[in-house]
Design a protein around this nucleic acid. Structure first.
Lengths: 187, 187
DNA sequence: TCTTTAATTGACTAATCAGTCAACAAAAGT
DNA sequence: ACTTTTGTTGACTGATTAGTCAATTAAAGA
């Protein structure tokens, strides 16, 4: 198997368990079952590894959000799919999601948040929300504020579902959570 | 001035700037203008300092939330005061707030989240919300889920206001943000 | 005043870290 | 078959770290 991939996977696990700086590169290579030196063959520095890991996971997450979006006709249905895609991906990839949260809440994330591919994704999503503002399906307020509010609600839902996983399939809870989400956004 | 306090203040600043593990104790004592050894006179270990800092800041934050709550009569007014107290404290104490966010999104926070004083505060707030559920002023859903949703919205608002501080005094924005907050909670 | 206790210093240590490197192995090209 | 490139190893290094400690100063009691 690709050792680069093994290293990224091991790093995700250890970073979430111990934190970025408390995880030595030696522990990452050990967890991945490869030699200590090879990490610096694939990544110039440890910070480089962190950056590449963040960007690749963020891309994976933002891509997952729009899955099957064209199979839905109604605007509200699309918004609901974005909502459920978001927390479903996070539940299915809890280590990766926790890694994103950890980095997003660190100042060192400034280094990587300005990555061009991520900025593009954010802009795309921004335009998507602007359409909803124009159609008067959501509040007429700055789209970036709408976006952060949306993702903060999704994040809190993911954290809650992580504590009570059985609720993932509880239709009553899911319906109430969606109601809260959309009530927050609607005009 | 109290060197213990100087150390905590310096630690808050550096932890937020560099991250917990990327901040050596030597940097903390240097920033505080005291000798390297004195840190271990006031705190047994570095982790001890982190724990004590977290608990003291969390207590300060949770206390600030209920300021002047008895001067308001209406239930809705009280809820709105909790909301504005929360983000006002966070804006006024941005370093401390960022420190809380950073620790809350780390696995190492498990160590400290179970601190008795913090559990008591959370339970108190939980009961407060339960009253609102009983009075049918907020959705009939698990109070812990309501609580995390509330604070996630407040957090996203604080992050947004940090980027655009002038909006703190923009009555239109504040009113819309409150509308979003309460629409999310109401039955 | 004298004694005891607490606060404070900074040089020190043992451990740990990110990153290097010479050597070797495997693939790929010719 | 032979050469070049690429992947891989693990011992090594210089720098940095958390935490110690003997010595010094300040404060408090008697």
């Amino acid at each position: 198997m690709d050792k680069r991939e093994l290293l990224l996977e091991a790093a995700t696990k250890l970073f979430v368990e111990r934190g970025l700086h408390a995880t030595p590169t030696s522990a990452i290579s050990k967890q991945a079952g490869v030699s200590a030196g090879i990490l610096f063959h694939y990544f110039k520095t440890k910070d480089d590894l962190i950056d590449e890991l963040y960007v690749s996971i963020k891309k994976e997450y933002t891509s997952s959000i729009l899955i099957d979006i064209d199979r839905i006709k109604s605007d509200l249905g699309k918004l609901r799919l974005i909502w459920s895609n978001s927390w479903n991906w996070a539940i299915d990839n809890d280590l990766k999601f926790k890694f994103l949260l950890q980095v997003d809440n660190t100042n060192c994330s400034e280094r990587v948040k300005s990555h061009p591919e991520i900025i593009t994704k954010v802009e795309k999503f921004n335009n998507f929300i602007q359409e909803y503002v124009d159609k008067e399906l959501v509040k007429n307020i700055d789209t970036y504020f709408l976006m952060t509010s949306m993702f903060s609600l999704i994040t809190s839902m993911v954290n809650y579902l992580t504590l009570f996983p059985e609720l993932c399939h509880d239709q009553v809870f899911i319906e109430q959570a969606w109601e809260m989400f959309y009530n927050c956004l609607k005009p």
